[in-house]
Amino acid sequence: MIYDVNTYIGHWPFRQLRNNTAEGLVKKMDEAGISVACVSSVHSIFYKDTQEGNMELVKEIAPYQNRFLPFAIINPTYPAWKNDFLTGIQKMNMKGLELYPYYHQYNLTCPESVELVRLAGELGLPVHLPCAVVNMRQRHWMDTQENLDYGQVERLLSLCPDTDVIITNGPSDIIAQKLQKVTRERKGKVFYDFARVEVYPIRGAKTNFQGLVAAAGVDRIVFGSCMPFQYLEPQLIRLNEMGFEKDDLEKILFKNMTYIIDKESANVL
């Protein structure tokens, strides 16, 4: 059993994607043994009104409700952001919040962003912060040239100490090391995926993955595929090569994620 914290549905404006529908994603999930996936709308990243994409997402996944946990993408600098977020949670069964400051062009520590992230924490909802959607080196000339700013994340974590945060699709070992101090000082937990973390010791005796484990602990590592943007197989190879016994492997595969799901279920449902 695998819980996946990072998937998308929708069209990417800069490259054709396959399996980017609910049906296509479920097919890939079944092939890999992924039971449940957190999912968000690619369209919400690009629509001026993110809520339109959130509504499309909820409609798209309706036939597969037991397979997906929809995350609402909200731009806290756009009018009615709070109403959209609460509507998403209370009426659309959204299970988390996802932010793209490098697309929506705001600082994570601006007052509205801090208020939104605190609100998510008060509701027991995790906040997903993808470091990027695609690797910047291959960006389309109209695409963003920014990634998640780890300095802003560090300050946000300090300003919103009760909110659980999931950071994906970036150099998690480096980020976890940078955030180690602030993470220790807060109540909310910070989880990381390993989508860009090498497990083979080809550059030195200590691997990037071992660096992630040392900085974050195995209780804070989760599985994120970034489907349908990326092949799933590199993540499965990493799982093989981590060298973990069953208990730790199960934490990464689904148990750590269960904490997030159970926590928000108790508070919201």
Binding site: R15, Q16, L17, R18, N19, V134, N135, R137, Q138, R196, E198, V199, Y200, I202, R203, M227, P228, F229, Q230, Y231, P234, I237, R238, E241
Partner: peptide, 29 residues
Amino acid sequence: SVYDEGIIEQTVHYLGANRTLFGTDGSFS
């Protein structure tokens, strides 16, 4: 390190497997 879904299929589509080589460049997995 880039493993975009479809990159290998398109490489084979445009070049053919006979013009494609395996390599890792520090990115085994």
